[in-house]
Every structure is written in structure tokens, then in C-alpha cells.
Amino acid sequence: MSLSRADVEHIALLARMRLSEDELNRMTEQLAGILEHIAVLQEADVSDVPPSASTLPPIDHFRPDIPAPSLPVDALLANAPEREDSYLRVKAVLE
């Protein structure tokens, strides 16, 4: 599977990363290498193996619906870059 430069630009956009020309070239090359490496797995014969979404065995039991205390807001926001009252403050985001 080949990877185009446009693919990498799209992935960078989704990841909110601004890449320079150099970085775009390097990433295209490196990501293509990784895909090639992973593509080796395609050679394995898995015709006898049912598709699986997880290596974990399925569960049939869950957490009972009982509330427990949350974190105190000061502890919660201790690592926040910025806060205003008890809100997290972030750069403007508009839909």
C-alpha cells in the first residue's frame, strides 16, 4: 500500500499538526515505511481465524451504577495550563 503526500497532509490536519515542507517529505517517507513493514502481516494465512476486534475475552458483567466522589476541583485543575474560576480556560474554539 502506498501513501501519498496528500494523505499525510490530511492526517496532519486531523491531528492539528502544522508540518513544514521538510517534515511533510520526511513523514511521507517514514509513514510509508511503517505501512510497508506492517503489510508483511497481510501474507499470513488467516482464512481459519474469525475476525476479532480485541485480544481480550468478552465480558458479561459490568460496574454497578453507584456514584462515588469526584476529584476536588483544585486537584483537578492543578495541572491545567490556565483556569478561570472553576473552569478550564483554553484557546478560542468555534464550531
Binding site: 469526584s70 476529584l71 476541583v73 483537578l76 485543575l77 474560576d85 472553576s86 473552569y87 478550564l88
Partner: peptide
């Protein structure tokens, strides 16, 4: 309730 008063490490 006050903002971020029902939040834990999982929510964060």
C-alpha cells in the same frame, strides 16, 4: 452544580 464539580481523572 458548580463547573467541574463532577469530574475525575477518567472524565479528564
Amino acid at each position: 452544580d458548580a463547573p467541574n464539580s463532577h469530574v475525575c481523572m477518567v472524565c479528564m
